[in-house]
């Protein structure tokens, strides 16, 4: 390994499913506490203490759920594509497992962003669905997740499925900016100067600070659920490994 000093040590450790399983197990309680604290605190702040918007009133409080889930859905896709690329290039099993674990989480967050956006649209625009640029982009992102999940479940061999999904996720990653740009441009063409949900000229501190707390809380929550899925995936894929057998037997003996 001495000739490969340019790669940090943890990168090689990450490649070991066993090490990954253990470190995730150690980190999980901390992240769970962090996520719980931030999400509960942020929700109370958002619902009770944050001021109501002068135009939208209290329906504005949906932003504290809509924006974090939308941001996370996008970050999750990015992570999925990058993990897939690492799995493709370095043949790293753990990266494949991360990519596979990301897809359902990202899809569920995209659904949450879509539903909250639709609910928010009702008091704001007067209808449950509006072909708003952001909502439409989010819908397409959701479709991309569905495609990735469908492909992954259609291919039987685990390693082939991981590689094929990684290619698809990367193609999607290249396309996401193009899709976003084209949808935004299409939107301005058809609905000139409509009222945007989340584009505020200047949000006061009392409004965006709880939003920041919620976004960080969602990231922490994402880490928790990702690590949980990752640990399951590691156990399942490594079930023939000696350390997994030892672990299971020691647990069952207790």
């Amino acid at each position: 390994m001495s000739d490969k000093k340019w790669m940090p040590r943890w990168f090689y450790q990450l490649a070991s499913p066993r090490w990954c399983y253990q470190i995730c197990g150690k980190l999980l309680p901390w992240f769970t506490a962090l996520a719980l604290g931030l999400l509960i605190g942020g929700t109370i702040w958002a619902l009770v203490f944050a001021p109501a918007d002068y135009q939208q009133g209290n329906s504005f409080r949906i932003i504290y759920l809509h924006v974090p889930s939308a941001i996370l859905a996008q970050s999750c896709y990015m992570l999925m594509a990058i993990a897939g690329a690492i799995g493709l290039i370095w043949k790293m099993k753990v990266a494949d497992m991360v990519a596979k674990s990301c897809a359902p989480i990202g899809a569920s967050l995209a659904v949450l962003a879509l539903l909250t956006g639709a609910i928010w649209g009702k008091p704001t625009w007067g209808s449950w669905w509006v072909w708003d640029a952001r909502l439409t982009s989010m819908l397409i992102l959701f479709f991309l997740y569905l495609g990735v999940m469908a492909l992954n479940s259609a291919i039987e061999s685990e390693s082939t499925a991981a590689q094929a999904t990684a290619v698809l996720a990367l193609v999607g990653l290249v396309n996401i900016p193009i899709i976003k740009y084209s949808v935004e441009w299409w939107n301005t063409l058809h609905q000139p100067a409509t009222f945007k949900l989340t584009e505020k000229p200047a949000m006061p501190v009392e409004m965006w600070l709880p939003l920041l707390v919620m976004v960080i809380g969602f990231y922490a929550f994402f880490a928790v659920t990702l690590m949980m899925r990752l640990r399951n995936e590691i156990l399942r894929r490594e079930r023939r490994a000696g350390w997994v057998k030892e672990l299971l037997l020691s647990k069952s003996a207790v």
Partner: peptide, 16 residues
């Protein structure tokens, strides 16, 4: 009641 927007706000947070 959230100033008349209770349904929307609570529905959103429930879904969340």
């Amino acid at each position: 009641t959230m100033g008349g927007h209770g349904l929307y706000v609570w529905l959103s947070y429930g879904l969340g």
